[in-house]
Amino acid sequence: MADTSGLRNDPRPLSPHLQIYRWQITMVMSIAHRATGIALAVGTLLLVWWLVALAAGPAAHAQAQGFIGSWFGLLLLFGWSVALFYHLCNGIRHLFWDMGRGFEIGAMYASGYAALAATAVLTVIAWGAALVLR
């Protein structure tokens, strides 16, 4: 007969309970990857509106530009840019994991901090360039 001992008696690991689990950078970044992905998906609405407005004519374009140029529009754009750079940098981290690389604890933390630093640098460069070019 088939060996069924593995069904019940293996010391299988349990999922961590968020309430009692000590928060650490790796799990925060994993959650943030998903959160920024959802935010970016919602943010595509703004991109589509802007493209359609541009194609629709000067009046619609002015309306879209007016919203994007408002304090609320700029706040959305800033949040969207941070989410984009984070998802991009952390996504590259994910691609290395997919190749089976960077799973050691040390490498995991190092790449995490590198992704956070790259996010900050890219955000500063982009908004610095936007201020200079406007």
Partner: peptide, 8 residues
């Protein structure tokens, strides 16, 4: 949304 954006 992809069709709208692509058409634009």
């Amino acid at each position: 949304l992809a069709t709208l954006a692509g058409f634009a």
